[in-house]
Design a binder for these strands. Structure first.
Length: 962
RNA sequence: GCUCAGAUGGUGGAACUGGUAGACACGCAGGACUUAAAAUCCUGUUCCCGUAAACGGAGUGCGGGUUCGAUUCCCGCUCUGAGUACCA
């Protein structure tokens, strides 16, 4: 029979499902290997052709590893909480779980038809209570933990309480809020419960704080920074404003240093690591305090050194600070400081503005406020600012320095204040020039005539005790001096902020927290999961509360002691968890997906440990991949997981772009569109306008005229001006999108060519990591290849005919060449080249008319990861037992079959290849040179001239220099 | 602006540590089979000159360099894509 992919694929997909062929065991003697895909959000649009790219690659790898004798964990699931389902619910009133359910069914059908070897018994859905129970549980652990800088890890909050009870607040070095109290053990014990809880909240790894959030009125929700693009929501493009709101936050900054260091230990693409490094944004420098020239009051009592510094610089509006604190990475330039600049939002601005300057400052602040985020960003050239009228003192020489405000200083970074060194910083330079402030050179070789010179070369001048020192010595000296006079110290600053952990939405995990006297308390672990309640409408309440406020009777009845069960009721937290909650730990759930007692059993985690290979898009670089690393480190700190990094190796598949096709409508003399369409090659001769045409009715850029007429009613009687009898379409590469009619759905291709062809073609398209436009131009070639492979097993009349004769040298050579090549290719994730190699091998075997079992048996195994259905079918036809192919032994490469005794040396003259000479590989270099020098062809090219030099690389090349 | 990635025939791409540039596939052209078409098979296909051919020259975004030899390494530039946005 001819190659009937439809029957074959259906049959084997059913077989795999019925026999649980890809079920992974949690314990075997085999070595383990964990291959993970980024699980999809099941959107209404279904999978498009770009989705499976990474899934196919990981499936090939998973199947390959199985053949190589590994116990492979290769699961799939759904990130099923999210905005689109909720938006749809708002519009239609349909419960998001219903649409989610439908969408998942579509995804599952689409995934199944591609023949993935997922272990579906481990499927997870983040919106299932059985799953989010553990997301809530992890939240509770975070709530019950604080970060101890001494131990450099998260520690139970109970230990902190024990310390407070015995030693008070001294000796605690924690990552915590800026405003913490300083107290003795007795004072702590004297605190009310409320006071104690309020204090503890400042230490917890997840905590409430009033943050300025990106509030999107149209979506009725708060957005994460990475969900906001240029002041508009990434999804929907609605305007976003800044709003203050009590928000759950995650103290990810506690892990900044570890997140940064960990990058050096994992095998990830360099650009991705770079993105995370930039996001974390470590800068090493110093904090320096500039005393205010005429302090208005005496220093406030300090709570602790650490907190005083920051609290005073931000001041919380008290306006009683006696110095300005700045952060700088060039503390060595401190003698070049000629003014200090505050962000307009800085808390001390009001109190430090003198009456004379009040109008100017207020006008400037008003002007800044009016500017949108977008304007402020785009307008980096214009210099603007206002003098406060106040002065600060240089802490090292007492010089009086003007204090300005300007919007080039950002409130959200460092301390919201900078020491301006116009000789070394271009922004400060422009500012100084514009407002006519002094510019003092501080390095001997500095050239500051037209712009700032940020050099670190040379030695210092105009710098007091630093004069004559170089950068390294100078920096050390300054820091020592600042510490000595108590005006500053070395400091590391991170750009990364704590992550907001909440959204004012319905379709997410409820936060397992209730409020008592305005403070959050966890519910009992035994009360998990806290089920998402039913509500009547998926919108905020009239009073602006999140949708969960609509849930009737949704109140917490405390089980805890002293309350009297069933008596006291409390309000639950009304916001839900953000999109990244469920995806920040899901790889552990796959290890033990049905476990009711734990998020995964200790044994399962100990066995699978971490993900060995993770494939997904780079768009998750600073979101999912950073949060996951954070939660993973936390889970390790509390002893639940063994590995510091969750994803050992990561590959980014490239984005698949759309390839749009155009037809060209002829425009008549009046400028109106006609019903005549001009082929692309002829448009220069006509007046035309381009129209997007559905790529599914175009093949190799040639329009199917009949399908075009059927496509839209108004084209039913279209006429065409053809070239060479064809209508050729124009082409452009754009985003894959419905409105460009360039979306290619894998279903159509799977129907037309089969899953095996689709799988191989997606790989054949090019290197996995490269972005590329989708086009189906080459898919025929892959289909023909599979048919040719099928034909190796059949005679001219499609009868299955395989010989048991011993293979000859040429056949064995072909086989072992492909064994070696495919192994090398898979190990370096070069799937496109292995497809080519398969084609070469099958071409060779076809030429050799090879139908020998000994060869074909092995070919079936090697090809199985790429085209599993056809291979399963042939495997059974070869007399093997159904279902055993996936776990067959991978053929062993034997280099002996590739050994050659002759090599056809390319002979080049001055590096230009001219001819070939075949010589025995047993010859020494000298013998080769002698043979070449006297060879007739070579002599012909030399034309009587003597070669200056002959370079012989054995088994590679001979180069003759003339 | 900064950071990263990339640029090879008509097209997708190959060339793995510097060693025959263009594998494999698409498309195109010609041929076989066929009443014809589809399917299939065969041949050719980087460009230029010349030509049935042999042969000659150029050639991996551009300009330099290192080397016996560079798509590969180094320096400078152009363009494309992605990320980032006054980060002190």
């Amino acid at each position: 029979m001819d190659y009937q992919f439809k029957d074959i694929e259906k049959k084997w997909q059913q077989f795999w499902a019925d026999n649980h062929t890809f079920k992974a065991e949690n314990k075997t003697n085999k070595p383990k290997y964990y291959v993970l895909d980024m699980f999809p959000y099941p959107s209404g649009a279904g999978l498009h052709v770009g989705h499976p790219l990474g899934y196919i690659a990981s499936d090939i790898f998973a199947r390959y590893k199985r053949l190589k004798g590994f116990n492979v964990l290769h699961p799939m699931g759904y990130d099923s909480f999210g905005l689109p389902a909720e938006q749809y619910a708002i519009q239609t009133g349909q419960h998001p779980s219903v649409t989610t359910e439908d969408n998942i069914a579509t995804y599952r059908r689409q995934l199944d038809q591609i023949g993935f070897s997922f272990d579906w018994s481990r499927e997870v859905r983040t919106s299932n209570a059985g799953y989010y129970k553990w997301t809530q549980w992890i939240f509770m652990q975070l709530f019950n933990s604080w970060y101890n800088k001494e131990a450099d890890k998260a520690i139970s909050i109970a230990e902190l309480v024990a310390h407070f009870e015995s030693k008070g607040s001294t000796g605690i070095n924690a990552v915590c809020d800026e405003e913490i109290l300083s107290f003795t053990a007795d004072e702590w014990k004297a605190f009310t419960e409320q006071e104690q809880q309020a204090e503890l909240l400042k230490y917890r790894l997840t905590y409430l704080r009033e943050s300025t959030v990106n509030w999107c009125a149209a979506l009725g929700t708060v957005l994460a920074n990475d969900e906001v693009k240029d002041g508009f929501s990434e999804r929907g493009g609605y305007p976003v404003e800044q709003k203050k709101m009590m928000q759950w936050s995650m103290r990810i900054t506690a892990y900044a240093q570890r997140l940064l260091q960990g990058l050096d230990t994992i095998d990830w693409p360099e650009p991705l690591k770079e993105m995370q490094r930039n996001w974390i944004g470590k800068s090493v420098g110093a904090s320096v305090r500039f005393p205010i020239a005429s302090p208005k009051s005496s220093p406030k009592e300090r709570t602790s050194e650490e907190s005083a510094a920051t609290s005073l610089s931000f001041g919380e509006g008290r306006g009683e600070a006696n110095y300005i604190e700045v952060f700088t990475t060039r503390v060595d330039t401190i003698f070049g400081v000629t003014f200090v600049v505050l962000a307009p939002e800085h808390e001390l601005v009001a109190s430090l503005t003198t009456p004379e300057q009040k109008t100017a400052v207020e006008e400037y602040i008003a002007k800044t406020k009016k500017k949108s985020e977008l304007d402020r960003m785009a307008d980096t050239k214009t210099v603007s600012g206002a003098f406060t009228g106040s002065y600060v003192l240089n802490p090292l020489n007492g010089e009086k320095i003007q204090l300005w405000i300007a919007d080039y200083v950002l409130a959200g970074y460092g301390t919201g204040a900078v020491m301006a060194v116009p000789s070394g910083d271009q922004r400060d330079y422009l500012f100084a020039k514009h407002f006519d402030l002094p510019i003092v050179p501080i390095i001997d070789i500095q050239n500051i005539e037209t712009e700032a010179d940020p050099t670190k070369e040379g030695t210092y001048i105009n710098s007091d005790f630093m004069n004559g020192l170089d950068y390294k010595a100078g920096t050390a000296a300054v820091i020592a001096k600042l510490e000595e006079v108590g005006a500053g110290k070395a400091k590391v600053n991170f750009r990364m902020r704590d992550a907001i952990f909440g959204r004012q939405r319905y379709w997410g995990e409820p936060v397992p927290v209730y409020f008592k006297d305005g403070l959050p308390y966890l519910i009992e672990e035994s009360e998990l999961p806290l089920i998402l309640p039913e509500i009547d409408k998926y919108l905020p309440t009239e009073t602006g509360e999140p949708p969960l406020a609509r849930a009737a009777g949704w109140k917490y009845t405390s089980l805890s002691s002293g309350e009297g069960r069933g008596e006291a009721t409390y309000e639950y937290e009304l916001s839900t968890m953000p999109g990244w909650a469920g995806s920040s730990w899901y790889w552990y759930r796959y290890m033990d997906a049905q476990n009711d007692a734990e998020f995964a059993s200790e044994e399962a985690i100990e066995y699978w440990k971490a993900v060995d290979l993770y494939i997904g898009g780079s768009e998750h670089a600073t979101g999912h991949l950073l949060y996951s690393r954070f939660w993973n480190k936390f889970l390790k700190d509390i002893g639940k997981t063994p590995e510091e990094e969750p994803f050992k190796k990561l590959i980014n598949q490239g984005m698949i772009q759309g390839r749009s096709n155009f037809v060209y409508r002829l425009i008549d003399e009046e400028g109106k569109g006609t019903n005549t369409f001009v082929s692309h090659g002829l448009i220069k001769e006509h007046n035309t306008s381009p129209i997007h045409v559905d790529v599914n009715i175009v093949e190799n850029d040639v329009l199917n005229l009949n399908k075009f007429k059927e496509w839209r009613p108004d084209f039913a009687d279209a006429e065409f001006i053809l070239e060479n009898g064809k209508y050729v379409c124009g082409v452009e590469i754009e985003k894959m999108s419905k409105r460009y009619y360039n979306v290619v759905n894998p279903d159509d291709l799977a129907q037309r060519y089969g899953a095996d062809t689709l799988r191989m073609y997606e790989m054949f398209l090019g290197p996995l990591e490269q972005s590329k436009p989708w086009n189906t131009n080459g898919i025929e070639g892959v289909f023909k290849f599979l048919r040719k492979f099928w034909r190796l097993f059949h005679d001219a009349d499609w009868n299955f005919t395989v010989s048991s004769a011993e293979p000859n040298k040429a056949e064995l050579k072909s086989l072992h060449k492909i064994i070696q090549k495919v192994e090398q290719d898979i190990e370096r994730f070069s799937f496109n080249t292995s497809v080519s190699s398969f084609m070469i091998a099958v071409n060779e075997l076809t030429d050799l008319k090879c139908n020998k079992r000994a060869i074909l048996h092995n070919m079936v195994i090697i090809l199985e990861p790429y085209a599993p259905h056809i291979c399963e079918e042939l495997w059974v036809m070869l007399g093997e037992q159904a279902g055993t192919l996936s776990y067959a032994a991978y053929p062993t490469f034997n280099p002996a079959y590739l050994v050659e005794d002759e090599f056809s040396y390319p002979i080049s003259f001055n590096g230009k290849m001219k001819t070939n000479v075949s010589l025995s590989l047993s010859l020494s270099n000298d013998e080769i040179e002698a043979a070449i020098r006297s060879h007739a062809d070579v002599l012909k090219y030399l034309d009587g001239k003597a070669p200056k030099k002959v370079i012989v690389v054995k088994g590679r090349i001979v180069n003759i220099v003339v």
